[in-house]
């Protein structure tokens, strides 16, 4: 249960959510609360339901039971993907999804916050502020020199960055980030971590990650949630979680780094 005082500070509420696929319980009675400005890391072995968890929040699938709310009382289960996105929930996918036949610049333009209607896009003219914002983002994700490249020609790590850039272009309140470090070099991974840390506070962020070094980096202040078999196994500081015997048993026990 949450008190009113806590409620004002909550941006995402997931309570008692269950989701079954063909008899397989992907998510079982999941409870998850995200505060405004929080950076939360979610870990868990393969099949723990991390991707389904994101799917449920972003409207890709609907829960069988339970409630998912945004902010005060916006029921996310009644909305579809683009409505949820327009509320200010952005998602980065595990496998980078960028528009491969569009240039980097166009990828960012399409993601910029702004009217999303058919006719407003038909008569859209890119303003100088928008150009400036795109330039800013290009510098941030270090793709300035490749602005005219087709996104499909970028390296895997660069695509990850581009997708993060696209996410930032939307200026969402909540960022759901699925394995951002996959396919990046150690240096890039570190910089990604720095970026996410710098975004915390202004945005609320949930990061799903396998890479334990990366998790350790970004979870230095925030909480870590361990998912196992579709439900929350434990939640707390990184060190506490790491010390938890149950976690060791189901997850860390299988190898320090999980699968990458």
């Amino acid at each position: 249960m949450t008190t009113d005082q806590e409620k004002t500070n909550l941006i995402l509420t997931v309570e008692g959510v269950t989701k079954t696929f063909d008899g397989f319980k992907a998510i079982t009675n999941l409870n998850f609360y995200l505060d405004r400005g929080e950076l939360r890391t979610v870990i868990g072995p393969n099949g723990a339901g991390k991707s389904t968890f994101f799917d449920l929040i972003t409207g890709r699938t609907k829960p069988d039971t339970g409630k998912i709310e945004f902010g005060w009382d916006t029921d996310l289960t009644a909305l579809n993907e683009y409505e949820i996105n327009r509320l200010g929930i952005g998602r980065k996918f595990q496998t980078p999804s960028v528009y491969s036949e569009h240039s980097v610049w166009e990828n960012l333009l399409l993601s910029l916050k702004g009217p999303r209607g058919v006719f407003s896009t038909l008569f859209h003219r890119t303003s100088t502020e928008q150009c400036d914002r795109i330039d800013e983002l290009l510098t941030l994700i270090r793709l300035d020199a490749k602005r005219d490249w087709l996104a499909g020609q970028l390296a895997h790590g660069e695509k990850q960055w581009l997708e993060i850039g696209m996410l930032l272009a939307q200026d969402p309140q909540v960022l759901l980030v699925d394995e951002p470090a996959a396919g990046m070099t150690d240096d890039e991974t570190h910089r990604t971590g720095e970026l996410l840390l710098s975004l915390a506070g202004k945005h609320s962020i949930v990061v799903v990650e396998h890479d334990m070094a990366f998790v350790k980096q970004i979870a230095r202040d925030g909480k870590v949630t361990v998912l196992h078999q579709g439900t929350v196994l434990c939640e707390g500081k990184f060190d506490d979680v790491q010390a938890d015997t149950r976690v060791r048993e189901v997850y860390l026990g299988r190898g320090q780094h999980g699968t990458r």
Partner: peptide, 8 residues
């Protein structure tokens, strides 16, 4: 059939 791992 909804597959959730990859986007497309």
């Amino acid at each position: 059939v909804t597959k959730s791992r990859s986007l497309e």
